[in-house]
Design a protein around this nucleic acid. Structure first.
Lengths: 240, 240
DNA sequence: GATCAACATTGGCATAGACCAATGGTGTTG
DNA sequence: CAACACCATTGGTCTATGCCAATGTTGATC
């Protein structure tokens, strides 16, 4: 009497649990059975197997490479963000951060950047686009807008690595106050290309507005983090 | 020569763009064509249409009801979290917050709760499980653990509504410092049941640890927010 | 032995079709 | 007029199958 009306929990979800069982105790990187093998083993279709595995990939528990196989993924990277920078955060945890510079130039601000930085559209802004890596793995795509033109910015940044360090030490800009907005999004073609993730993977999109002690905006940044490898931490102390 | 080698962008992703075009200018709540109609209109299969629509639903741009149809979703609710509570946050934005009490009891802490609250496993803790609603819509599932037993907690909480207000006004517990951890997850059967979302929908899972001025933990909470309706904001001022 | 072509394997994308479940309307019945 | 049974519509799940794309191995060739 239990083989007729059991359509409460979808089959693919039960399969997810089965696969989690298979993974228990396996080292990260270990290959699990192929989709076709799992479909046969659990008497289901590959479509259903793929739906189960896709969610486990989205949750960061599995990874997969076309032509190679599906494997147990390494654990999430915990990341702390306070008034510090990406690089400082990573080093605090004993991880090796790195950056790939995609673009750095001075241009006239569009309406959106101008609004956030409290400028007039067309005012000059510095636009910095980078890929942030941890332990060699791309983790985030970041575009930062800074008001005005910063002399010798490129070489200074290359020297120090950390944006916040350069702003403070070279240009005397001290960040006193930041507001982060965190929301979810799904990976599109550009995210796939830049971060090496798969279509539709969940992302954390963080917008940061930093101000100096006088309340003037000094940085507006849009960061796209891999949702499967990243954890966002914010600490707040009671003001007064 | 452009009809052979075009497998760069998946078809379902192109369809997503098409559907976004259809939605332009429509009021929230407006029904879009049925899956079967879209499949025919764009000469594709319902499977492909569903994949496109599923992602738009996950992004909070569409909603759907079985037996009824697929419709344009209302915009995201922005939510501010500082040292304040869910209810205060909502009221600040002129929104009507509400809570449904699922469970409230005193029990012996398990290993996880004990570790976060810096107690011994088995020490008494108060466990508060609620559904948080905004404008009548379920938005989050929240389980809070508080150290020890709080006399007359249930009636006091019912009176004030806000957990933080009760802690401060009735029990003299002042929150001085909170740490929030934000990560993504996908909806399982329990989330589906409690929040009225669909399987596999992206979620924001927030763990909060609150401490008093002496550094003692006073609250540990796990909140599951709908990723399609919610935006997390954290403001940090430079300490000293 | 090194290089390169061919092939098998594995995941990625898409199709067509079937049946279930929830919703809402229609029409009958009391 | 209200209540109820029925039914069409619409999304939800699953199957079976095909071909494409990336990877890695095998084996022939130089």
């Amino acid at each position: 009497m239990s083989s007729e009306v059991e359509h409460v929990t979808p089959k693919y979800y039960l399969l997810k649990t089965e696969v989690l069982g298979l993974m228990a105790g396996l080292q990260p990187g270990t290959l699990i059975p192929t989709e076709r093998a799992l479909a046969e083993k659990y008497s289901t279709s590959r479509t259903t197997v793929r739906q189960a595995i896709s969610e486990l990939v989205a949750e960061g528990k599995l990874g997969r490479i076309q032509g190679h196989g599906t494997f147990v993924a390494p654990p999430k990277v915990t990341h702390v963000r306070q008034l510090t920078s990406f690089s400082d955060d990573a080093r605090t945890q004993g991880l090796r951060p790195d950056s790939t510079l995609i673009a750095l130039n001075v241009l006239r601000s569009d309406a959106e950047a101008a609004a956030h930085l409290e400028l007039e559209p067309g005012d000059p802004v510095t636009r910095l686009e980078r890929i942030r890596l941890i332990e060699g793995e791309p983790l985030a795509h970041e575009i930062a807008w800074l008001p005005g033109k910063l002399p010798r910015f490129k070489s200074n940044l290359a020297k120090a690595g950390s944006l916040y360090a350069v702003l403070a030490d070279v240009y005397g800009v001290k960040v006193a106050d930041v507001e982060d907005t965190v929301e979810t999004a799904l990976a599109g073609p550009e995210d796939v290309r830049l971060l090496g993730i798969e279509m539709g993977a969940p992302l954390l999109v963080v917008h940061r507005l930093a101000r100096d002690a006088a309340g003037a905006p000094v940085e507006w940044t849009r960061s796209v983090f891999r949702g499967d490898r990243f954890r966002f931490v914010s600490r707040v102390k009671s003001g007064s």
